[in-house]
Amino acid sequence: MADAPPLEIHDLTVAYHKKPVLWGVDLVVPPGKLVGIVGPNGAGKSTLIKAAMGLLPVSSGWVKVFGESVAKNFRRVGYVPQRESVDWDFPVSVMDVVLMGRYGKLGLLKRPTKDDHDKARECLDKVKMLPYANRQISNLSGGQQQRVFLARALAQESELYFMDEPFAGVDAATESAIIALLHELRAAGKTLLVVHHDLPTARNYFDMLLLLNMRVVAFGPTEEVFNYETLQKTYGGRLTILSEVAEAVRVKG
C-alpha cells in the first residue's frame, strides 16, 4: 500500500448529542501538500480533524490513514491541539512537553533515552525555543506556547500532521516562523492539514484549501477553490437551511 493516500475520508458523519456537526464528508488528500481547512465558526473544522484521528465517535463513514485505519497507523500521525486545550500551569518544563512527542515511539516501561533528548533539543532549536528548554510552561507567551506544541509535533517525526488553529493568538513573528516551518515540513514530503480561521492569509499560506461548513463545500488547489462563489457558499446564508433541518432532527429524534 505504498501508494495509498495519506488521508482518505469516506462519507464521514459526526453528531454531538443527536445534532450533526459533520455530514457526509468525502476527502482524499494527496501526499506532500499543505492543506488549509477553512470555514465559519461551528463549521466542524476541529471536529473533522479529531474524527479523522479517531478521537471522536463517528455516526457513519470511515477514515483511512495511509490505507489503514488510524488505530493501526497512529505512529505516522502527528497532532497539534488547540493551545487552550491544556492547563499551562501543569508542572512540566518545555523540554518535558517536547519529549512527550517521543513517547509514542517508546513503548511501555521505556524512558526517553539520550537520543530522544537530542532529538527534542533539535526540534526546540528549529522553533527557536532552545533557550527556554528548562522553563516551566506557564512562563511562556502565547506564541512561545504554540511553538512548543509545534516542536512536540516535530519530535513525533510523523508523515501526516493535523494542526488545530496553530495561528490563533500568536504574534506576527511566531506566525511567520510557523509558516516557514510548515513549508519546510512540506518540502520534506510531509502532508499537513491545518485548521485556519483567517481567510485573507489562507490564500497565501496553503497549497490546497478545504472549505467546510458542516459538509465539504469545496476542496482543491487554492487558486481554483478560492473564489467568490465558493466562499459565498461556505460563509453565506445558503446553508442555514441545513442547520434548520439539523435542529429539526435533534428536536424530533
Binding site: 479529531k50 484521528m53 479517531g54 478521537l55 488505530a71 497512529f74 505512529r75 500521525v77 497532532y79 491541539p81 486545550s85 491544556v86 492547563d87 501543569f90 512540566v92 518535558d96 512537553v97 512527550m100 512527542g101 513517547y103 509514542g104 517508546l106 511501555l108 516501561l109 524512558r111 526517553p112 512536540r152 513525533q156 493535523f162
Partner: peptide
C-alpha cells in the same frame, strides 16, 4: 514509576495522548 510517562502525558494533554496511541 513504571507508567510514569503514560500518566504524565494523559494528564497533561489527553487529546494528544490519544492521538499518539495511548
Amino acid at each position: 514509576f513504571a507508567f510514569y510517562k503514560e500518566f504524565l502525558v494523559t494528564s497533561f494533554d489527553a487529546a494528544f495522548a490519544r492521538a499518539a496511541g495511548f
